[in-house]
Design a binder for these strands. Sequence first.
DNA 1: GGCGACCGTGAAAGCGGTTTCACGGGTGAC
DNA 2: GTCACCCGTGAAACCGCTTTCACGGTCGCC
Lengths: 338, 338
Amino acid sequence: MAAGRESVTIADVARRAGVSPATVSRIMNGRFAGEDVVAERVRAAADELSYAPSPLARSLALGRTHAIAFVVPDLANPAFQSVLAGLSKTAARDGYRVLIADSGESPSEEPLLATEIRRRTDAIVLCAPRMPEDELAALVERLQPLVLINRGLPEGSGPSGAPSLRIDYRTGIRALAEHLHELGHRHLAYVHGPERSASNAHRERGLDEFARDHPDVRIDRIPAGAASDDGRAAAPRVRESGATAALAFNDLVAIGLIGGLREFGLRVPDDISVTGFDDIPLAQYLDPALTTASVPHADLGVVAWSRMHALIRGETPGEDVLFQPRLELRASAAAPRT
Amino acid sequence: MAAGRESVTIADVARRAGVSPATVSRIMNGRFAGEDVVAERVRAAADELSYAPSPLARSLALGRTHAIAFVVPDLANPAFQSVLAGLSKTAARDGYRVLIADSGESPSEEPLLATEIRRRTDAIVLCAPRMPEDELAALVERLQPLVLINRGLPEGSGPSGAPSLRIDYRTGIRALAEHLHELGHRHLAYVHGPERSASNAHRERGLDEFARDHPDVRIDRIPAGAASDDGRAAAPRVRESGATAALAFNDLVAIGLIGGLREFGLRVPDDISVTGFDDIPLAQYLDPALTTASVPHADLGVVAWSRMHALIRGETPGEDVLFQPRLELRASAAAPRT
DNA sequence: GGCGACCGTGAAAGCGGTTTCACGGGTGAC
DNA sequence: GTCACCCGTGAAACCGCTTTCACGGTCGCC
């Protein structure tokens, strides 16, 4: 009744139905042009043996795996989790699965990691904020089809470049800074992300623009990272800076920072305002609710798949997208004490 | 210099090094017993061609993929994301990747989904709270090696059963109820999870025990689900019930519920206390900070991999674990108004 | 010096599918 | 009645790697 320990192969089905493996293959794949009787017989045989083709063997023969790779710097970050959820759900709808790789602990091995995982899949969604531009360009060259998240390629990288989905961190953080300025803050602290992070660089640029427009404002830059622990660790320096408001690299950092400040007896926003970035799912429920720039991460995943799917089918993918964050003004940023 | 469009195969390396593919294979896999000169020559050839073995072909020949499957009901739930993060990181350390499947929208197809994805991998971590027991048993039989999350098998399912890692929801929710009782609440509402969810059943059992010990307490059961929207939707009924405290199925539901109650002008915990379950990463930062039962989800993922790894190597996995939640008493639960 | 054991290596047979190609039989046209 | 064509089918090659098995050569031992 049930299949034995050894899995049942196409040859078993063929034998039972009295046809060749080739015919079985054709029938299973809809490329069959013969009599219906035969097809029925084969299907019956397959059912009786509860046959299912080996995805591995198919992949090898076909040259496609129906799987895509997703490389992220930190899977523990809710922002990436949302992207993943969106990506995975939509890809599944088209019969594709997602193989994940967290490059977190070894940025230097990211190219190897990506290369390795790419070979197991048909395509790759790459999220590598800290990768040097030249390495990135090399990967884009070698690993296609490829979709970039939050990274662009230098101008003139040719038409063969990868679709790129980015978030306008520059404009987003600038808007946050403007908001703080309007609230009356004149001394800000930027608790920045990982060194060499491209998305951090974009934020810095946004702040530079803001600074140019507002010479009266002082901005201190305080090193941190991308996780909440980094934010917490930065609390002392933020406090020492004397800033009345802190722009955190992202929501996680903001949360850690708020926690850290609280340990000094500082209250947000009474004593100091704090803003985040991302609008992770729980940001609105935090204490205090976090003022942040909202990014539709799940949509990012969905669009990533749509681009990917087009690429895989050899169609031209849609245009690059620069997602515009939406300001979410909540309780964590308020007017400075007078 | 660079490889051509077509990928370089083991045969190319063999030809260049003047040996047979068999020898190349042996050298690449450390099964080589010949002269060092030959090995060096082969390695050099491989480098020059920048050869990397096809994982697909290896998998087919070897019968193992170095990938494991992870099936979850909802990837958007931070609790599962934490499990995934723990699982993925530790598995990666041993050279294994994780292929994910979100069964969310179609619980009825879960067995098919699991079967399909299992065939692409060496093993499967299954998290299927809503799967009927008989289907689950059938899967455990067919899909080994397999590790179960939050599901057990009936007694006497034999020594060949799968390792099972569970959370003691029963004790956890009972402790939460006791806590509310001590605070003075005598009318509780349980905002329950998905019908047929095994982990919900465990919670119900815990509450039954609690009810037996405290005949003076009334517990209303209010249907909801597992996501925050479900919690929000349950708010009216919770309010109508007149309960002074609500035990939510999990943190997500609790968060939604708190939001929903707030829309009615009810304040937590002043007007009504609310508890969650899971202690998702941000629970402590919420407004109000959520009283909940803390579950080490990332550890769950880590242990899942350790069991899995043992299983894959044919060793006997460690014992089943029943993780004990730790009560996190925070602001969302307080004494009822007198 | 001859025989057996041993060792490094390659040819070839898988792994389980897909696909090309050729073959044989049936049909339609002249 | 013959010839050409078409169509359904199977044999075999192939995807790229691993591994068994056999072969030829060395070495050791009596």
